[in-house]
């Protein structure tokens, strides 16, 4: 039992910069962001996150190729009528429309599903792995950890949306002509103006996802199973999307987080039609407030036994 038989290092051999016991100094307020930085890096280095982003990037690529093939003979995409996602008929004239089409195609399911996976796993996944207890005794602080998780999910919303938009822009530029474009109202705007609106639309789409992000995070605080939290969040998304189609429920529908999602198209009107955009952003703020508070109330009082 002598100490020599162990490869573990002897006491007193720490490097000199390690402070003496009891001499933990007052932390700089900026140090508190160390966890956020680490959380962002950890999240975006995960294989699962990269796979989700890869799937999202594939959507505009596939849509672009499909439109290109379908219009080889000079016919217009979407049969010239209302079929297919918004803006699809205009892609052949201007590749920038692939950005709008791709966002319109991914917003109902792909994007929120990816958010649901990341948000649902945020707390429950850590509880499942047991790492939550070590973060809490570090001590990360429950409010600080929850805020860090929400900020990271929001960052993922933004990155996911930008991945779709940028992949669509690249694909559109490769396959179709670029140039001036016609708004829904029929007016012409310059390509630079169109690019600006595309960026604005991407930001609005990302903001549209803050509601389900908060909902997913709340669900994540309820269980110790990451899979269960992800499945519940995605299940709720699908349910709400279906209920939003049932005419008898029209009185409730304005409160569904997805109800105004496609209002981003109003940014392509001249002048911009703001009503539904404002409704959407207000509704997202409401969801973020309600479910963010619920998540906080639950997480700061819950027993962490996993």
């Amino acid at each position: 039992m002598s100490r020599a038989e162990t490869p573990m290092r002897q006491a007193g051999a720490e490097p000199p910069e390690v402070a003496a016991p009891g001499a933990v100094r007052a932390p700089s307020p900026l140090w508190t962001f160390g966890l956020l930085r680490n959380e962002l890096v950890t999240t975006f280095r995960r294989w699962r996150t990269l796979a989700l982003l890869g799937v999202l990037a594939a959507v505009p690529v596939l849509v672009g190729i499909a439109v290109k093939i379908e219009t080889r003979d000079g016919s217009s995409a979407g049969g010239g009528g209302g079929a297919g996602p918004a803006f699809i008929a205009q892609i052949t004239n201007n590749g920038l429309f692939l950005v709008f089409t791709a966002l319109a195609a991914t917003l109902p399911f792909f994007l929120p599903m990816a958010i649901g996976v990341v948000a649902g796993d945020a707390i429950a996944g850590e509880a499942n792995a047991g790492t939550l207890r070590y973060l809490l005794v570090a001590p990360a602080g429950r409010s600080r950890l929850l805020l860090t998780k929400y900020a990271t999910v929001m960052a993922f919303c933004l990155v996911a949306t930008l991945v779709v938009a940028v992949a669509a822009l690249i694909m559109g530029a490769l396959l179709f002509p670029l140039g001036e474009l016609t708004t829904i109202s029929g007016t012409r705007i310059s390509f630079a103006d169109g690019l600006g609106r595309a960026l604005l639309i991407a930001l609005v789409v990302a903001a549209s996802l803050t509601g389900i992000a908060a909902l997913g995070l709340f669900i994540s605080t309820l269980t110790n199973s990451g899979i269960a939290a992800m499945a519940t969040t995605v299940g709720l998304l699908i349910t709400v999307q279906i209920l939003d189609q049932i005419p008898q429920l029209h009185a409730l529908q304005p409160y569904f987080f997805s109800h105004y999602w496609l209002s981003f198209a109003d940014l392509m009107r001249e002048p911009v039609y703001w009503d539904n955009l404002v409704n959407n952003l207000g509704l997202q703020a409401l969801y973020a407030g309600v479910f963010g508070s619920a998540a906080w109330a639950r997480f700061t009082t819950r027993d962490v036994t996993a």
Binding site: V18, P27, L135, A138, P139
Partner: peptide, 19 residues
């Protein structure tokens, strides 16, 4: 885990982890 501790100095983080 060290980043989770708000009192842990990030300037010495790598050295402390190595130690």
């Amino acid at each position: 885990y060290d980043a989770a501790d708000p009192t842990a100095d990030p300037r010495t983080r790598r050295a402390r982890v190595a130690a």
